[in-house]
Design a protein around this nucleic acid. Structure first.
Lengths: 240, 240
DNA sequence: CGAGGGTTTGAAGTGCATCAAATAGTGTGG
DNA sequence: CCACACTATTTGATGCACTTCAAACCCTCG
């Protein structure tokens, strides 16, 4: 069991480059759990005990405003880490987390994280790198929301889902339902539907349910990225 | 000279809590320069040599899209640090920096920064804390852009300019010209002007040029923060 | 006084949200 | 395998917020 967790942790960018001893230390205090769709892992403002690494499934991070609106912070899947920043927030979770597709999730006590940061220089540096990567992503996100319109945001999202390897074609499967994609991109489901239609007309992609076929990635990229400061393939903005 | 820089560095949150030896090491390789309005400090994509700490004046960080639009990343003043993240970006500046109000700026070679991170555990931890604070700010920023309308965003901006100390009244001076405030808040100058008008009607603030008088902070806060997940005074979201 | 920037105002257009309703899709029990 | 219930998605109609383009205004400074 512990060994499985060890191997798995190594796959996450968050822990990449760490020595085996560190990974092992963390695995021994780690727990793996299954959760079904809809499970609320924690609520913003709650006292934080652990942070999490996703092994499978999807998790939505969000906040709610005083008058009931919801802002989706992020939607994460395998190898992503969340809840770790609460150690800088007085051990309070800064957002809520809900399982949106059945998930297997590893939890590790925050005390173990603090311990590594305090006593393990390599760990602190690794976390710094990871934090910086995320920070860069957020800057991109702000830019996208400011400068791209709905069809362009969808196009950009699709591009990031493609495996860069392909020549000029690609087939993409939406990772979760369209309503969720819409919220991830900061728009209404209706807007998403219509914007996808416009994107289709503008770039010749083919939409069949949750599957999307792209003939000319070039064309999609030109349409979406003209309003963005970084050109496709959006540099190295891979996830945590 | 070096001593002046030392004292100054200590004031920045970025260096807070560091021991004198560290501060001293950094000061010896630091340089202070004066810049006039309009000076372009560096351009996105350029090879990064140094990072910067502002002693006085204002600096705008921004990026430009392929079709010429500009996205303002941030507008910074005294004690703020910028350009430091390029060490995680292959020594490339991820944005451009322009002086928008005559400024005194300290520059420190990135090599010195890397050196501290590699060899000084306390420094790495301090930077982690600073990074986390900034990350949190960005999350707030995304939320504001998504959920608040123009008048609310202005209200929120004003609230963050007030010294929390005051009872229920405050007088605020806009830190830079209104066009810049508008871009900082992600709106057009015309929209800013009109939205400020609406905010005036809705909350009873008084606008006299660049000076704004608030009688009931309560009222302003209620108007602006209802669409936001964190209540005024926006927790501890003070700057770097 | 006059030039030039910043700021405001007006009019018109665009994009997204909202509300309402139709349609497609999925899983259930018979 | 079908009918039903329920949800996801699409489509239509309308409204509001912000942008855009244009022009007026204001203020400062030579």
């Amino acid at each position: 069991m512990t060994e499985m967790v060890q191997n798995f942790l190594k796959e996450s960018l968050f822990f990449s480059g760490l020595d085996d001893a560190t990974i092992k230390r963390l695995s021994t205090v780690a727990h793996l759990h299954d959760y079904e769709k809809g499970k609320l892992l924690f609520v913003a403002g709650e006292r934080a005990q652990s942070f999490f690494i996703i092994r499978a499934g999807w998790v939505k991070l969000f906040r709610e405003t005083l008058d009931g609106d919801q802002a989706v912070v992020d939607i994460l899947t395998a190898r992503h880490v969340f809840g770790e920043t609460s150690i800088f927030e007085n051990d309070i979770y800064p957002y809520s987390a809900e399982v949106v597709e059945p998930a297997k999730i590893v939890s590790i006590p925050l005390s173990a994280l603090k311990n590594e940061i305090e006593n393990n220089h390599a760990f602190a540096v690794a976390m710094l790198t990871s934090m910086s990567r995320y920070r860069r992503q957020q800057e991109e996100e702000i830019e996208h929301r400011t400068l791209q319109n709905a069809p362009q945001r969808i196009g950009c999202f699709l591009l990031r889902l493609t495996d860069q390897a392909t020549d000029g074609q690609a087939r993409v499967n939406l990772p979760y339902d369209k309503t969720l994609v819409a919220s991830r991109l900061g728009m209404q489901p209706e807007t998403f539907s219509r914007a996808l239609g416009k994107l289709k007309d503008a770039t010749g992609i083919r939409v069949k349910g949750a599957t999307i076929e792209i003939d000319k990635i070039e064309e999609l990229s030109e349409f979406s990225c003209s309003a963005c400061s970084s050109e496709f393939p959006c540099k190295d903005l891979k996830r945590r």
